[in-house]
Design a protein around this nucleic acid. Structure first.
Lengths: 158, 158
DNA sequence: CCAATTCCTACTAAATTACTATAGATTAAC
DNA sequence: GTTAATCTATAGTAATTTAGTAGGAATTGG
């Protein structure tokens, strides 16, 4: 039940974008370098994110990407669903893929999948990029007090 | 983030076993037929389940499988983890696979994965096979009142 | 003995994942 | 107007994972 790299990289990339917003657009090469993700792979992910309105692009030299909305208005559920499809443990509870199952109204196993899905949804639809940025600031403050300095927020190999 | 057939079939098979317990061991061929799952694939799954103590086997003619404990004492978390490994959206929060990540103590993305994992764990570690059996009985009662009869609990193609 | 069963291991085809490659379009800066 | 930096689009591909199948050995009731 692991997310694929699409969802994992995509969230990290958008979080990076949210952390490093500066008014002007951020080129993918920067995000790729900071996050240690292949630039051309990111291009694919950002194509999907752009179509979903989660980022806005500026073409040409000095172009790049900006968030498509305020970080407080972008929930990680939107990001993950854009990149991974509906987050569901089985197709019978996938709202998009929608594989109907005969006898679903008497299927207890299906109820289990639904509960799992609902609990995931509740998490990912209640946390925004803005929340993540705020949390990062808190963590940095805390670590600063303890003498730990990490201003990179990068190099995740997962 | 779909579960693989190992987890999905495995849960259905053990639920089938819990529903159809009769004292004596149930051969896999029965479960395979009722649940529409390949018998030889089930053999593989039950090998893992047996090693984990979730089922007990009786070899030879008239042999088969029984639950390894009371249905009330077998939680679906145990079943899914036996067949799928730890249920985690990313390796950095996988307690078994345990891919350590440098800077994990300042990683907000990791905190997200952890919340997702925790919410899944809470669901799967709070529902037992016994709960599922009880729920099935309730559903059958309800459907009976409405004239819907479904005594098969089978043929899921998901 | 024989049939029904679990047990064990190896193999394999299909699907998915995680990219890479290539070509093109757009734009800022010089 | 040329160049370099950037996004856009599509196709290809190697590695991995999934979802089984196959074949046979061991066990046991009748």
């Amino acid at each position: 039940m692991r997310l694929s790299t699409r969802g994992r990289y995509g969230l990290r990339a958008l979080f990076d974008l949210a952390l490093n917003q500066s008014g002007g657009p951020i080129p993918l090469s920067e995000i790729a370098r900071r996050q240690n993700i292949s630039e051309s792979y990111l291009e694919q992910l950002f194509a999907s994110l752009r179509k979903a309105g989660l980022v806005k692009s500026v073409r040409g030299a000095h172009g790049g990407y900006n968030l498509g909305a305020s970080a407080d208005a972008i929930y990680i559920g939107q990001i993950l669903r854009t990149l991974e499809g509906d987050i569901a443990p089985a197709d019978c509870v996938n709202d998009r893929h929608a594989t109907e199952c005969s006898g679903a109204d008497a299927c207890v196993t299906r109820i289990i999948w639904e509960k799992i899905k609902d609990s995931i949804d509740q998490v990912i639809d209640s946390i925004s990029l803005g929340d993540m940025v705020q949390k990062q600031n808190e963590l940095d403050q805390k670590n600063l007090k303890n003498g730990i300095v990490n201003n990179s927020h990068t190099q995740c190999n997962i």
